[in-house]
Write a protein that binds this DNA or RNA. Structure first.
Lengths: 200, 200, 200, 200
DNA sequence: TGGTAATCGAGACGGTACGTCATGTCTTTGG
DNA sequence: CCAAAGACATGACGTACCGTCTCGATTACCA
């Protein structure tokens, strides 16, 4: 077992200790100095790790951030399942807004999404490895509602998600406007008004 | 007049020739090599200009891109005024989608927005100098409709814009999904369904 | 017995197989890529041996070369004993010239002597372990001649050797000039002219 | 004039100040820490100069040492011209011995000659640019003696020089034996005994 | 008409971070 | 116990740009 005993890297495999130190250092640096302040050199110095150890395991600094990001994401953004579509959506969207605007992994997400605008490979990886998984979680409340008969079966789920999630990301990434609970609740209201006009 | 005679920079003022060369070189480099390929050194070499000339007039490379961007933006994204809200919005949103996904200045916009995620100062400048102007243009169709009585006077215009524009930017910046005419038309349909339920 | 059975290193002692592989790899690398091309890493890779095995047995890469060198030296540079001083010296000096300029161990000698210029410890070891032994061999023809009465008993043997050997090393190490038979013969002639003026 | 005003490097040309600092730093490091202790990083740090400045002007660290060496050589090793061959040679050889064994540029010479054993390009450059010039100076006393009729016209000057200089270099580079005045005087005596047997 | 002042291209400078390489140490696995 | 494998911290390598600086030239303006 790798985790059964601490070791410092040998034939047994890589050092978990070094791995954790690198990921934490990267996260800290991003939080403290912003994306430009995250350098391989700096991560190495802060983590007490050799540069070569980083290059051995990660192709670039964005890969370090990507891995650091992965570990934190799922727990934050799994939508609830109360049996009530409106409640589920309101909670989930509020959680998303808070994640994006205030959490550390949210800051990493913004940084990576920003970098992805200049780096198509990163964009692809970000979408394939992370956003698609999140997207699947985002779909759950709608699918459950369809199964319950609370939403029409022919609804375009992906378009619906874009309508719900898009404005939040837009405020976070483009306009910089705060995303209060009233805004996310209103998104849910608009959605429900269109697809369940009778209910309200 | 500065433009009346070609000169190469002297007491008369700065060289318009050099300014144009710099802006074009920056644009070209962004298109050819991406944001990371845009360097002051590279712009200077390509424009046949001294580095100092760039530093004299622009604080950083993003300022060069910002200036290059400014010149192209307004013309592309001024919404039409046909007197019909639905038509105006459909056209405007389709134009926006095309601008963001296919045009050169759209690429510059994506790059700058990406960089703004790591650079709060750029974010502020981008919003204050450019997005607010664009936002004002975006509001026009809605204000005109309100004046015509085609929309209720108490509508939250900014929230409405976020609902209309957000999903498009979300697809462009985050998911990378194409933004076809059907998607933008559907956004308009959802908007009208909510705020003018009687018409259609 | 170590040699009776092949083993790969165990309680019976170190692996002769590994030792030979290391020495040969070092020699080969020196011949192929020069001194800078000899690295512990490279020797290990080429010999199919772990780096640690090299570090266990040799303090540094020059020690590997030194050991490789030791094995080849004595056989090449033992002066003949024909009973005639002139013949012995001419043959020995010609052998030395050929050894230094054309043989593989001669190349190792040049490399080690070069390295010794920046490494006093190596210089000392080279002199104590190898050059003094060679020096003793070099003295033999002169001592035999003295015993035969062919040279005066009060001759300064070491100075004489420096006069005979110095110009050859000088050409090899400093000027890079070839060292033909005529040159070595002339050295012998000068020596004999001084110390046995009657004989010629 | 470049030298008329101090500058820090610009279109005017390179900075003499930086050049001097680099050469001195290299010399100092060689003297203090030996050849292995001379690194580009170290020179840069000690000279208060950017690494790039060194790479801009010198292809490698040996080129720095080579240039540092050039400046000091000629003055030390120009043979005297007293009109007496024996005196000229004795003085010159004693100077050479002292230069090689005790002076700072002599240490640089030993280091470069050592490095030349692993670096054929350096060997060539060392010979073409420096040793040939020194060789020309070394020939002067012999040529003057020939013109005076103090040496036969058909003497092989180059071979004679190897006989005179070789043993000194041999002691310095190979055996590490001291080179006292008696040794150099004896070399001259042997030379004169052969080529001017009558004179003594 | 000739001095003054601002700009320009050019490019050297001190730096920072990059990504690669070899070093020598360490630990595990296995014969 | 020794060898192979290979991860590790260290630190020099040579490169690419950074942002600053000084130069010599050009070109208006203004006295």
């Amino acid at each position: 077992m790798e985790s059964s005993t601490t070791h410092r890297g040998n034939r047994h495999g890589r050092s978990e200790e070094a791995r954790r130190a690198v990921l934490e250092a990267a996260d800290d640096l991003l939080a403290e100095r912003g994306f430009a302040g995250v350098t391989i050199e700096g991560i190495a110095a802060r983590a007490g790790v050799a540069k070569q150890t980083i290059y051995r395991w990660w192709p670039s600094k964005v890969d370090v951030l990507l891995e650091a990001f992965t570990e934190d994401m799922a727990e934050h953004l799994t939508p609830p399942d109360t049996g009530d579509l409106a409640t589920d959506l309101r909670t989930h969207l509020a959680n998303l807004a808070e994640f994006l605007t205030t959490s550390d992994p949210g800051a990493v997400f913004r940084a990576l999404t920003g970098q992805a605008q200049h780096d198509p490979q990163l964009a692809t990886r970000l979408r394939d490895d992370h956003l698609s998984a999140q997207r699947a979680r985002d779909r759950l409340p709608l699918h459950r509602a369809i199964e319950r008969g609370d939403l029409p079966a022919d609804i375009d789920v992906d378009a619906a998600l874009d309508h719900l999630l898009g404005p939040i990301h837009y405020r976070v990434l483009v306009t910089g406007t705060p995303v209060p609970r009233s805004f996310t609740d209103d998104l849910v209201a608009a959605f429900l008004h269109r697809h369940r006009p009778d209910s309200r």
